[in-house]
Nucleic acid binder design. Structure first.
Lengths: 234, 234
DNA sequence: AAGGCGTCAGTTGCATGCATATCGAGGTCG
DNA sequence: CGACCTCGATATGCATGCAACTGACGCCTT
């Protein structure tokens, strides 16, 4: 009847009896919020797959909370576009199809290109050095883990996304990247080598302080991603 | 203790677009949704001002519903960024400051320019003709109404935003336009004449099928808006 | 006079219970 | 045999009640 407690969310990190005087309430740590984060993560990790139906009572039980905060979390996710609801039916985890993926890549090309150009000269050198190390380690590694692939990807793109001096642009690019990541790329592993090469090219342009090259390498990278997808899909 | 019923939302209204199995149907007509739409409109119409605190019980009473669906609506709005909440305090209507406004305009410049170029040749001529009429009527009118100013603005920009063949781009531009509209422009009325002129220039480029000119006139229009704001602010 | 503490009103957080809508299985009638 | 109706299992929609938290005010102590 009861799900294992492993997935349950909790304010305390452990089970019962919340400690009321723990600070760190910047984000707000109520059940709605925790559920929001948990579900958000489940979707990104594909523990909830695109198109899957969400049954409130069951998910609430899995998370160990009642339906009320769960529903609030789902509404928030709907506002962000991670789930949708039709008529009076269940929530559905958003599924990104090829067409939408390509459309989002097109927009990313525009925005990320601009962000890269704007970020030139704004990025701490040690940060770039660290990301370079990460890419090289990943490339040299004998084992492959999806998670570290995505992480390195986030870190590289984050370099210019976070330092373009335009928080609105930063936010929108993040949203776009969520969309593209929801599209399940077959044979993602085959992207490791081209990703690494292209990422290093972007890094070189950023380190050289060459705005034109930064924009151009980023645009080329995103186009390469599009070509790869089109090639593997057909 | 009861508010006047004037503002209350209701299912029974003439909302007759409730086709049972229309494919695009996302809305659903439950109280959460109605509250969502009502509040969304209140924010856009500035009946709820930026920075204003939202007291759940009171707003629920005004809308004639209980707190539960109201809270769900607020969560959704938070996902969309129209309201924010700090720690365990009340929701606050989002206030867009000058800096964010300018950042959003910068992004709009990029995206709307591209959208206009993409939309060339895709827009029904009669639609363009109608928008042209509207602009000319508005310009010639002796009275000024904020609402029709915004409406004409929406219609003109909508021409290319809706017909750029990239729904993802469409959606993001819409979100950006919500952000910029939340910024209260002082002396908006003084924008009527420049808006009209610039809108007609955009229209001419679209009608002529000149993609380069379309992008350029749109970019110029948005830059003009920025200049105007900077001039009136100081 | 200044700082600590209790109290209270106002507010949000959440579980619960009941009303209502949906879907499918199986029976009925044309 | 198929269209339609019924009924029950399963879902979602929402109001309500109560617990917990917050901020303000005033009293008490020092």
């Amino acid at each position: 009847m009861h799900a294992t407690d492993a997935l349950k969310i909790s304010r305390t990190g452990q089970d019962h009896e919340a400690r009321p005087d723990e600070p760190g309430q910047v984000a707000g740590l109520n059940l709605s919020n925790l559920a929001y984060r948990a579900i958000s993560e489940m979707i990104r990790d594909r523990r909830l797959k695109g198109g899957e139906q969400i049954v409130e009572a069951r998910l609430a039980d899995v998370l160990g909370i009642s339906r009320t905060p769960l529903r609030e979390a789902l509404q928030r996710l709907e506002g962000e576009g991670l789930v949708r609801k039709f008529a009076n039916r269940s929530y559905i985890v958003r599924a990104v199809e090829l067409a939408e993926y390509l459309q989002a890549l097109k927009v990313r090309e525009l925005l990320e290109g601009e962000a890269a150009a704007l970020a030139v000269g704004q990025i701490p050198r040690d940060l770039m050095a660290r990301v370079r190390c990460e890419i090289e380690e990943l490339r040299a590694s004998t084992s492959y883990h999806t998670h570290s692939h995505w992480q390195s990807d986030d870190n590289l793109h984050g370099l210019y996304i976070e330092h373009c001096s335009n928080p609105v642009m930063t936010e929108f690019i993040h949203a776009l990247r969520v969309t593209t990541r929801l599209f399940e790329i077959a044979r993602l592993k085959d992207r490791l080598e081209p990703d690494s090469v292209e990422h290093l090219a972007i890094l070189a342009a950023l380190e050289a302080g060459d705005a034109k090259a930064a924009r151009q390498t980023v645009v080329a990278h995103i186009r390469s991603l599009k070509e790869f997808t089109l090639a593997t899909v057909r």
